[in-house]
Design a protein around this nucleic acid. Structure first.
Lengths: 347, 347
DNA sequence: CTGTTAGCGCGTTCAC
DNA sequence: GTGAACGCGCTAACAG
């Protein structure tokens, strides 16, 4: 397979390479006839320009990178769709990159920035805290989506933008909702995580809601999943362990819908009725929460809005229409069928 | 931010660029001391080699590409994890690329092949049929995973490999399972798709099972979702329409678990008990099928095995240990709680 | 409107 | 063991 290059195409057309280049890149100053002829030959030969070479030369490509942390997570799928549409609408190209759990997303961004000519970087998910100096090394605008503003102690917040819900407040909200329905012994399923993160913010919200209403925090009611909060199996196992421990509780609040669905299944297997015997609440408002049986009471994150706003923001920053900002959207308390008012005669 | 290059590093170290290059790429013929000094400077400066330039020059990188069709689909997540592990274990790099529904995955592969130095390409999902000449243009070994062997009419099958279940046979199997439990009026939820695809194979299996048992195919029982078979909302809407139509049926078989879960919810809302009034079967055996209420009866695809075998195969082909092959794994009929034997007194 | 030419940053010869 | 020089394929000046 003789690698066919732009020179070869130029030869076959009897033109210079730059003319071919112009044809490929839709430059205006080219004879339509010439262009047509060139495109013809390109099609015939099946020539495909080498992207590496292009990236190397190109001064500037209208290109955005989106780095998504955790491919296993269906959470981001609806966001990505929106982002793709919007970016295309603006005539930009999109580099979508998945970052493994063990990788440092900023590190990956740094590398990508060298390789492509990026105009901006969007992070979807990922850890909430990054080394300040690394973020500073990024030379194009950065927006974190679904992550709040406390990304690094050492940054003033002017080096990047964020678009997200206020995880602590939303978590407070749903916990208070449970309390308002008479629940006092509210178990909490989360991830054991020392580093500041979304998960930790949600825990804070849970604890402060209890505190506000004079309910003591019972450490036995706080249960940790093994590593990942986006697998049903973890939700199942942890809920089962909770039940088996004999601990009394009237509600279980899980930091993610996925965990909550796993818990639903565990309760079903244990012959515990939801919401008859126990109420279950989730967080995220994923598609799943609307289709499981019973439907989950949860906090819906406005992912569409977050996505759209993220895009708007990054383009505004690119176009120097504004500086870095931190935008917070309210989440929505979605009342499902998995939570109910408590009777006095409960366990 | 002055873009720092290999020349700059060389200058600061007082060595030639090629020495720096050798240090970066772990070449053997370099003084350990020199190397150490260079790596030190690289760390200090935060220098990151430009990948485009590397790809342009590099004769050969141990690199594999995996093209995944449809990012919305959680189906592939477990496969990707396995693939990543295995590839890393063999010391290869991995390029993971998501292909949009409207993109032609082979086209993308062609482009990628020009850009990077690939040694092999793996396709996860995607349409079952491709233009023969395009596949032939690919100069490195190609393996299709989860797609059967009828990828193109014009190919002998020696130009590529496949690793998958026999979708038609598995579909036949689960349909026959329903029939064996006394079901005769078995509705089928699928995607309207003219082009040969997995979906069509499953339909064939459904129809031939009915035929074998002397059950007429009732076109009113075959229901088409709007475009995508991996959204619960589609399963919900289509099941609801089926119920509303007043058509009589005792079982519903959906071409994907995701659709089936949507259907479960629709039946719950309609006050139809599963499996009391209606039995529901899915296909795929995703995590979801084990955690929904009731658990789904479905066909589990052995994704781990498929992934592992795909990797083994592509490396064997790269190493010339074997030629192209077509491997079929049996699926597993998983008995859940969503299907039951029919009474004679049913609707 | 078009052809010629100079690099983009790096890996790879080939001398030393 | 190391450095100088060449060129990968392409785009962007520039000159015509």
């Amino acid at each position: 397979m003789a690698e066919i290059t732009i020179v070869e195409i130029a030869k076959r057309c009897g033109v210079g390479v730059s003319t071919v280049s112009r044809a490929i890149n839709n430059h205006s100053d080219i004879n339509p006839e010439t262009k047509k002829r060139i495109m013809e030959v390109i099609r015939e030969t099946g020539y495909i320009p080498n992207n590496s070479a292009r990236n190397l030369k190109r001064i500037d490509a209208k290109c955005l990178a989106v780095l998504v942390k955790g491919i296993t997570n269906p959470f981001f799928a609806p966001m990505i769709e929106v982002v793709e549409q919007e970016v295309e609408k603006r005539g930009y190209a999109l580099v979508l990159r998945h970052v493994e759990a063990y990788e440092d997303e900023v590190e990956v961004a740094l590398e990508l920035e060298k390789e492509k000519r990026l105009r901006g970087i969007i992070f979807l998910g990922g850890s909430a805290r990054h080394a300040a100096d690394k973020i500073k090394q990024l030379s194009v605008p950065v927006v974190f989506a679904t992550i709040g503003s406390d990304i690094s102690d050492d940054l003033t917040g002017n080096e990047y933008s964020t678009v997200s819900v206020d995880d602590e407040r939303e978590s407070f909200k749903i916990t208070e909702h449970l309390i308002s329905l008479g629940h006092k012994r509210i178990a909490f399923m989360t991830e054991a995580n020392d580093t500041p993160s979304i998960v930790q913010l949600r825990r804070k919200g849970y604890e402060s809601a209890l505190a506000k209403h004079g309910i003591d925090i019972d450490r036995n009611l706080i249960r940790y999943v093994d590593q990942r909060i986006y697998t049903m199996a973890n939700g199942y196992d942890t809920a089962k362990a909770l039940v088996d421990s004999g601990e009394k509780f009237t509600a279980l609040y899980c930091v993610s819908d996925v965990l909550a669905v796993g818990a639903l299944r565990a309760f079903a297997d244990a012959g515990i009725s939801v919401p008859g015997d126990v109420s279950v609440a989730g967080f995220d408002g994923q598609e799943l929460s609307r289709f499981c049986v019973p439907r989950l009471t949860t906090i819906r994150q406005p992912l569409q809005q977050i996505s759209r706003e993220t895009i708007r923001l990054i383009f505004d920053i690119i176009d120097k229409k504004c500086g870095h900002t931190h935008i917070t959207f309210p989440g929505e308390l979605v009342i499902g069928e998995s939570v109910r008012k408590i009777d006095d005669s409960s366990l």
